[in-house]
Structures are given as C-alpha cells and as structure tokens.
Amino acid sequence: MALLDYFLRKKEKQVTTASKAKERLQIIVAHERNNRNKQPDYLPQLTEDILVVLRKYIHVSDESFSINLDNKDGDLNVLELNIELHDEPTSTD
C-alpha cells in the first residue's frame, strides 16, 4: 500500500486542499471582519442608555446583557438584545 501511495501522491500534488482552505478562509475572515467593524459609533452609548433604563426595573449584571448589531448578508441589519433574567426581586433605590 505504501508503495502505491507513494506513486499516487506524486500525481495528486497539483490539487492541493491546503490552497483551497486558504482561499475559503481569506473570504470568510474578510467578511466577518467587515461585519465586526461595521458597528456604528452610537452603539456604546445606546448600550449604556438601555442598561440605565433596564436597571430602573430589573437587576441586570454586565455579564447577563449583550447587544449586537448584525448584518445578515446584504442590507438586512438586525439589532439583537440579549438579557438574561434572574428571578431575584428588583432593587429600586
């Protein structure tokens, strides 16, 4: 088998799967970076403001809150809020 592999491999060399992998990665990584960098300037302030409002009513820790603006292939932008609710009572001061 090893002998056969040795000769077969010589032929296959031209079609490298590694170069295909590289090409695919370059495309997907560029795409994802582009999306990451598209976060608008107002997002940090919006996040702060939303948290202030939420905290008037419920307890939300930094860890249980996330906000994301995603670009779903093309022109569709989705603002995604994720708030984990714990059932402790509210502390309004």
Partner: peptide
C-alpha cells in the same frame, strides 16, 4: 502534510490572521 499540500502552512495562517 504541509509539503504534501494537505495542511495550511505557517505562512498561510500568518497571512490570514
């Protein structure tokens, strides 16, 4: 495996990241 074209090379990964 890199030499056989089956695995991304150091240069490939450096280029991408």
């Amino acid at each position: 495996r890199v030499e056989e074209g089956e695995m991304l090379s150091v240069e490939d990964v450096k280029d991408i990241l």
